[in-house]
């Protein structure tokens, strides 16, 4: 029987690393962009804007996630190869 253990391992590792990295980067961005904190007033949550630095870092993370989506599209669409 011919089982390609090497590509199996490669696919497994790539999946775990990619999933954790992409989810981590985007979550970091969301954490930064919603870092202003919020207070509850009568049931509705009022959020304060994040600091300027947090805003820049947050949008940078979201931007990187966007680039990763473009890379995914590049991989999916065969015309780009």
């Amino acid at each position: 029987m011919n089982i390609d253990w090497a590509s199996l391992a490669l696919v497994a590792i790539t999946t775990v690393v990619a999933a954790v990295a992409i989810v981590g980067i985007f979550s970091l961005g969301v954490a930064a962009l919603t870092s202003g904190g919020g207070r509850e007033t009568g049931g509705s949550i009022v959020t304060n804007p994040p600091s300027a630095a947090a805003k820049i870092a947050g949008y940078a993370c979201v931007g990187i996630s966007g680039l990763l989506v473009l890379y995914g599209l590049y991989l999916i669409i065969p015309q780009f190869h």
Binding site: D4, S7, L10, V11, T15, A19, V23, L75
Partner: peptide, 17 residues
């Protein structure tokens, strides 16, 4: 996100899932 990553990895690294 995991599903997308797994599908792309499997279709480009030769181990079909």
């Amino acid at each position: 996100t995991t599903s997308a990553a797994a599908i792309l990895a499997s279709s480009h690294m030769g181990f079909g899932l």
